[in-house]
Design a protein around this nucleic acid. Structure first.
Length: 244
DNA sequence: GCGACAG
DNA sequence: ATCTTGTCGC
């Protein structure tokens, strides 16, 4: 299902081993990020009018070890759900700010592999370029799948910014030192803004345009909301194999 | 040395 | 992320 594997039918659902490094220590994890970082395409410009947009999210079980990942594909124009996948898994790494992606990556990739419909944009729950080593979850998912990706965070990880105007669509640059790493974007009038950053094969302007187009009514994009609802429901009702 | 720190 | 009660507002 991923672009990187289309030439290997017998292996089409597996991300190449050379990119699947599963670190066991903080040093190894940071090394993986530094190695993949050069593969990120920050220019894009990415699809201005994508057909299908995917939202990804994860819900954690009570023990904090098991989790359920969900991917929901929406029609970019109507925002109607056209496909989805839910997978149960295990936390693959302890939570460390900056290494968050390693916790959910294996299960999220598995869920992406189970889609029937190929999305042309991934909207990730977390940051992309707005990361200490400029390689957050959105960059990681983008590079591993080869798909355009953007990161939408609810809270900051790095950078400083000025509050954007209260109107929907207003934004201010998110800067980490001298460089702009993302934007603080107001998706609804008078509502707390979100943190948008490039993941892969997209420019920042387009990334913000896509986020706004996906958030007609609420603070978070419909993609994120649908994915959140799906994995949360699947976990609570245990309607997913491999749990318990 | 002391905070901050995606989900 | 998840644990948690009520509360203000559409």
């Amino acid at each position: 299902m991923t672009e990187l594997t289309v030439d290997e039918p017998e292996d089409r659902q597996r991300t190449p081993r050379r990119l699947m490094a599963n670190p066991r220590t903080v040093a190894e994890a940071e090394a993986v990020q530094d190695r993949l970082r050069p593969l990120v395409d920050l220019v894009g410009p990415g699809p201005t009018t994508p057909r299908r947009v995917a939202g990804l999210d994860v819900a954690y079980a009570e023990d904090g070890q098991r989790l359920v990942a969900a991917v929901v594909v929406l029609d970019a124009r109507t925002l109607a759900v056209v496909d989805s996948a839910v997978v149960a898994g295990r936390v693959a790494f302890d939570y460390v700010p900056g290494l968050f992606a390693f916790r959910e990556l294996p299960t999220l990739l598995e869920a992406l592999d189970r889609l029937t419909t190929q999305p042309d944009l991934l909207v990730c729950d977390g940051h992309g370029f707005a990361h200490p080593r400029r390689f957050g979850l959105a960059c990681h998912l983008g590079v591993l799948t080869g798909l355009p990706a953007i990161g939408v965070g609810k809270t900051p990880l790095v950078g400083q910014w000025d509050a954007p105007a209260e109107q929907r669509g207003s934004w201010s640059p998110l800067r980490d030192g001298p460089e702009t790493v993302g934007r603080v974007l107001r998706t609804q009038d008078g509502v707390k803004p979100v943190f948008v950053s490039v993941g892969h094969r997209m420019d920042l302007d387009n990334a913000c345009a896509r986020v706004l187009a996906s958030s007609p009514r609420y603070r978070l994009p419909e993609t994120t909301r649908q994915a959140d609802q799906l994995c949360r429901t699947a976990l609570a009702a245990r309607i997913v194999d491999g749990l318990d």
